[in-house]
Every structure is written in structure tokens, then in C-alpha cells.
Design a protein around this nucleic acid. Structure first.
Lengths: 346, 346
DNA sequence: GTGAAAGCGCTAACAT
DNA sequence: ATGTTAGCGCTTTCAC
């Protein structure tokens, strides 16, 4: 009564060799595109491979060659457009170099990050791309684990004091651009909905915000700042809180577009028009930004490019190790749409 | 002048065995949680493993045991919330069973799908989860390739005539719910922005649309139907086309939320109010649906559950093969928000 | 240009 | 309860 197990034996290199009347070595050479095979032999072997529908076992290959062409990606939230874009860029770049990514996301509980890393190291990943915010405790944990010979590149994540390769977007500049846009449009009281404080990017954008205020000679007022968690709902709540607090403000810089859109909903419900009563600038340039009402002015980040660049550095670190730490910082730029209002006539 | 290659040798099972004064077999037994090891020995071995920071090589293990605990996911567009959710559910379920997913998305050119599949089969995936629309030519190609002993489950994809495991959402019913909602609100002329015709779900939702019209005794008018490509921009264009065509309609069913939002923008630009002039229902219940203006009435699909269920079926098929084809069909449900207007007083 | 021998790190199948 | 032998499918090394 046992289920019939069709174990469907795979064709091995040995069968190809026998069929072609050569040694397994020769087949191996053909597979690896070595030059030292007679053109005729090569052709014959190729034919046999095609006829038998032979596919080399990546597992056996990497066991002996000690190269897996596998990279690990540790990220936090796949639902977020931001990370999805990093992933898309990284995947594409990896494929061009013959590598592929093993995913390992720490979605819900970051408790299981050690387990994620174990999955990756047990599969002998050649390198790891860290694309998630810095959490408190894990820095040394991660780094110790990873110093075991795996290359590491951090995207949008800066382990303090670690000398490693990082790729990031200039968040100070981005925050400054967003804020300046609002100031240039004549606003003096600019509220900010920030992301979670433990994110480096949050601090940086806040720094940009303060710098822009300072440059405009406008005092910094901490009561205008509320923290969200990047979600639409948190943006909505944050704006309700600002409104309930009776703060006076005529503009808002939200540190991501989702919170901006949540905040706009709260403003609308409170009878405040955007941009007439409150001008709004978001961050990320998610696809819906162009289509919401009003179309959202936002800071565009080249996230695919971040993923691509990080992967390029990672592969370089794998293939020629011993390089030094390096930080690549890409620029973000403001995309002007209706939500920020218009410049004041000078 | 060569870069110093820190080859950082990994600890092997042999070193653990030597250090613990047992055979590699015994260590292997401990690793695999076999019962036939003396409690004391087990403890000793565990200690040595911890001390040496030993991690078994997944590669060597699966070479000999012929089990990789690896699943392949073939999907089309990671930018789409819909597929992201399937992926999240699938990943979670897989992890609970000790499996993990290798991704292989056919983002841009579906030309390279054979290459994607090769990547998966070369890595000895035990099963493949197909989560993408049916494309024309590839059905037999995929299926032939996959009949080579790999289990296959299709989510949201129905290769014609193939006897395999599928998980899907009831799109006929979903399309009908969306349309009925609009009809119940007193509309007689309901336009539809459909997705690409090659998608099975598109046909099914259209079937539901027609069924609802028929049930209400309203004639079907093909001039009210325009095809989009799921994007915001295509929804916008489709609505412009409908408006330019001079069609008379007071309601719209868009087959996904992004096109609905694009269409709403076009309506707004044309001076038509939603829902007063045109009531709108979307599909998918993407996160922004709740926060756009007006909040979007839409059909919610349990996509995470689809991913989870498909993975469950896949693992079952792997671990006890020989089962028959089966189709699990989950239900979608309407989420009422403002964009569809209100029922007519009876 | 090609082949033979050795072995990657681990587990299956037997022994004891 | 533990050890021994063999070998997964391939590449590396060295011989010819």
C-alpha cells in the first residue's frame, strides 16, 4: 500500500561520459568551458548532453569546487516597496554575474535572525547583503558570525564602528531637500512625521530637516515632530496627534510616502486641504505617489541602483578579497508634484 | 602582490568527531536527532559542536541524502503586492516545515524562463510553486520540464488540461461581487477595466461581471470594456479612453486597485466626482486602498493564505507522492468603502 | 588534448 | 549504542 516512489534517477556526468566515449573529466571540461578540449570532442559531448537532457548537479559541483555562486540577502520587510526595489536590483545584478540570491527575511520576529544566518552559512553563501535597519543588539552578533570568511555588504545599514562596504542614499541631503522645498514655498512651521528612531536613515533625514531649518533661520521646534512606524496607519495616527495637540503648522515632511498618505487622509478628515492649508512632502516616490490626490511631492531614491551597486561590491569582495571598507552614497532627488503647493512670489 | 586569500577553513564533522572522541557517524546521528545515541554521548557531542562553532554543510548533506529541503518559486513580478503576499505566506509555511524557497522570477523577459527553471533543477529543488499567469507557449515546456520528478503546485495559474495541484481564489465570484455591489447601488451602465486577456483570472472576473449583469437583467455591452496591464498608468489611460469614447457609464469595476486608482485620477481630471458621478470598485485590497481619496471599495483576496496553502500542498506532494490533482479555491470578499457610493433607497 | 586517481563533507547500509 | 565501509556527483591534481 505504499505510495509509488518514482525516484526518477537523474542523468549523471558518468552516463554522459560513457555515452560519448570519453572520460568524465572531458565532460567536466566541456561543462566548464575549458579551452583544452578538441573542438570535435567538445561538439560530440555537447550533443550527448543535449540528447540525454543532462543537467549538472549544482550541489555536487559546489561541494568539490567550494564555490556556490550563492549570495544571501537579509532584509526585513518584503511588503515594503523600498526593500522590494533593492531586491529587484540586486537580483538582476547577481544574475548577470552568474550568482543568485538566497533570501532570508526577518519579517516578524527579529528573534530568529540567528537562524536566518545559519540557513545562509550552512548553504555556504559566498557573501551576504544586509539590507535592513540596524537593530540594537545584533550588530556584533551579525558581524562576528559573518567574519567567518563571508563577504558582507550593507545597504541602507551602518553597523557602528564596523569597517565594511556600505551603499546608501544620502538621507541628510534628502531630508534637507524635502524640507527646503516646503520652506521655499513660504512655510515657516514645518511638522515632521519621522520613522522609528533606531533607523539610521531616520536620524539622517531629521538632520537634513534641521539643517534646512537652520539655513533658513527658522527655529527648531521638537513639538512639531512625531514618530511613526512607516505604515499608512501610523501616518494617520501621527497627524491626528499633531492636530489634537493644537500645534500650528502649515507644512508637513513625512519620512516616507505611506505615512504621508495616511497623514493626508487625517488632514482631509479634519477639513484641512492639501496643499492649501497644509503642504506635504513625502519620501520614497512609491508608484502610487503620482496617482494619489493630490499627487505627492516626494524624494525619489534610486533603490534598485542601491541593490545593484551593493551586489556589485559584494561580488567584487568575493572574487578579490582583501579590499578595504568603502562607502558609496547615492543621491536622492525631489520629485515635485502638487502636494507641496507652489513657491511664494518673490 | 596577490590579495591575501583568507580561506578560513570550516570546521568539519571529522574534527568534531575527533575532538569528541567518537566516530563521524555518531556526530551525524546527533545532528539528525536520531534516538540511538546514549544521552551522555549526545551531550558531549553537542558541547563540542557548540565549542567549535560547527555548522554542518547543507551541501554535503543533501548530496548524499538526496534531500535538499529546497523549493522553487517561479513568479512574475515582485513589485506587485499580490505576488509579494503569496511569497510571504509561502515562505512562512515553508519555514515551519523546514523548507526554504529559491526564488526565480521572470521579471522582464519571460524569455529566460527556461533558464530560471534550469537554475532550480540544477539545485535539486524538491518542488516548484508556480505563481504567475499562464503565458501562451510555456505550458507544455514547463510541464515537460517539471515532470522530471519534481512536485509542482500552481497558484493563481491553470495550465490547461494539466492534472496538477492548484490553489486559486474564486475570481468568478469575486468579479460578480464587485459588479453586484455597483448594480445594487443603482447603476445600470458599469464599465470594466480588465487586466491582460491571457490571464485566467481576468477571464474569470469578466465572467463574474457578465453573470452579475445577467442576473440583474442588464444587457452586456462590450464597448464598456477596456484592457489595461495592471499598472496605475494603464488604468489612467483606460479611463481616458472610455471618456474620450463618449461612453455613458456611471460606475466602474477595475480588475485591480492600481488601475482603479489610475482611473480615479483620470476621472478627477475630467471633472467627474467619485462616487457621485462614477462609482468605483477595485480588486486586491492593497494597503493604500483604505487611504486613497475616496477610500476604495475593493475585493479582498487572501493572498498570503494562497501562498501558505499552495506550499502545504507542495510539501505534502513531496513527502508522499502519488496523489491526484486537486484544486483548492479560496473565497474573496468585498470590502465596502466610500468609492462605490451607497445603495439606492428601495 | 585526454584520462586516472583522489577526495570534497556528509549519510546509508551494514557491521559489531 | 557505536564504528566501518562505501559512495553521492562532481572537480582538482597530476600523469601521459
Amino acid at each position: 500500500m505504499e505510495a509509488e516512489r518514482v525516484t526518477m534517477k537523474r542523468v549523471t556526468i558518468r552516463q554522459v561520459a560513457r555515452e560519448a566515449g570519453v572520460s568524465t573529466q572531458t565532460v567536466s571540461r566541456v561543462l566548464n568551458e575549458r579551452p583544452d578540449v578538441a573542438a570535435e570532442t567538445r561538439k560530440l559531448v555537447r550533443e550527448v548532453i543535449a540528447r540525454l537532457d543532462y543537467e549538472p548537479s549544482a550541489i555536487a559541483r559546489s561541494l568539490v569546487s567550494r564555490r556556490t555562486y550563492t549570495l544571501g540577502l537579509i532584509t526585513s520587510d518584503f511588503t515594503d516597496y523600498f526593500f522590494t526595489q533593492v531586491f529587484v536590483g540586486a537580483t538582476e545584478e547577481a544574475r548577470q554575474h552568474g550568482y543568485y540570491f538566497m533570501l532570508s527575511s526577518t519579517e516578524h520576529n527579529s528573534e530568529d535572525e540567528p537562524e536566518c544566518i545559519r540557513l545562509l552559512t550552512q548553504h555556504h553563501v559566498a557573501g551576504i547583503l544586509l539590507a535592513r535597519p540596524g537593530l540594537q543588539s545584533d550588530d556584533d552578533r551579525v558581524l562576528r558570525l559573518l567574519r567567518g570568511g563571508v563577504a558582507v555588504v550593507a545597504a541602507v545599514y551602518h553597523p557602528p564602528g564596523a569597517q565594511l562596504l556600505t551603499v546608501d542614499v544620502d538621507n541628510v541631503d534628502g531630508g534637507s531637500q524635502a524640507t527646503s522645498c516646503l520652506l521655499n514655498n513660504g512655510h515657516h512651521r514645518v511638522a515632521m512625521i519621522a520613522g522609528p528612531a533606531r533607523w539610521r536613515s531616520v536620524c539622517d533625514r531629521a538632520t537634513g530637516y534641521r539643517a534646512a531649518l537652520e539655513a533658513a533661520g527658522i527655529p527648531y521646534d521638537p513639538t512639531l515632530i512625531v514618530e511613526g512606524d512607516w505604515s499608512y496607519a501610523s501616518g494617520y495616527r501621527a497627524m491626528r496627534q499633531l492636530l489634537a495637540g493644537g500645534c500650528v503648522f502649515s507644512a508637513l515632511f513625512a519620512q516616507n510616502d505611506r505615512m504621508a498618505i495616511g497623514a493626508i487622509r487625517a488632514l482631509r478628515e479634519a477639513g484641512r486641504r492639501v496643499p492649501d492649508d497644509v503642504a506635504v512632502v513625502g519620501y520614497d516616490d512609491i508608484p502610487v505617489a503620482e496617482y494619489c490626490d493630490p499627487p505627492l511631492t516626494t524624494v525619489h531614491q534610486p533603490m534598485q541602483e542601491v541593490g545593484r551597486m551593493a551586489t556589485r561590491l559584494l561580488i567584487r569582495a568575493i572574487e578579490s578579497p582583501g579590499g578595504l571598507g568603502e562607502e558609496v552614497r547615492l543621491k536622492a532627488y525631489l520629485v515635485r508634484r502638487d502636494s507641496c503647493g507652489t513657491p511664494v512670489a518673490s
